[in-house]
Amino acid sequence: MRSAQGEPRPLLGHPVADPLVRARKRAGLRLPGSGPAWYNVAGGGGSVAVSRETVEHIAVLARLGLDPAEAGEMERQLGAILAYVGKLRELDTEGVEPTFHVLGRLLPSLPLRPDEPLPPLSPGAALANAPASERGCFLVPPVIPEEAEKGGGGG
């Protein structure tokens, strides 16, 4: 199978001594031998201390409702991941502009839309996926009293 352009080329299951060596020889290539060791090392790295308090604060910000067991596991996992991504500190990025948008020159400025109305969703379609609705509106549980504008939270 898989011959190309006249010259038969064993590729699959062919016992090759060292394809890299062979490749170099054939095409005058210099292919890398063994690359950096970071791939294997990365997983076994250390951990950054993330306090339980921080984990809980973040969980509140993200409205994830973690239970204590989950929070504990999250503490460990976040610590390991943060240790890994902390690798970025090795790099000097002084004076480097961030790339918030990769498009760059492909899109020199934000495109703008003419102020022309488009048909909205039908009322049925707007509410079709709603977990709860009433009188054409989405129904949500009461906001906690302190947050309600007219609530007696001030007293």
């Binding site: 009433e134 509106c137 129904l139 949500v140 549980p141 009461p142 906001v143 309600a148 007219k150």
Partner: peptide, 15 residues
């Protein structure tokens, strides 16, 4: 807009 009036079970939302 959140409408608080006249709903016992919570608030209504109009977008």
């Amino acid at each position: 807009k959140l409408l608080h009036e006249g709903v016992e079970s919570g608030s209504l939302v109009d977008f």
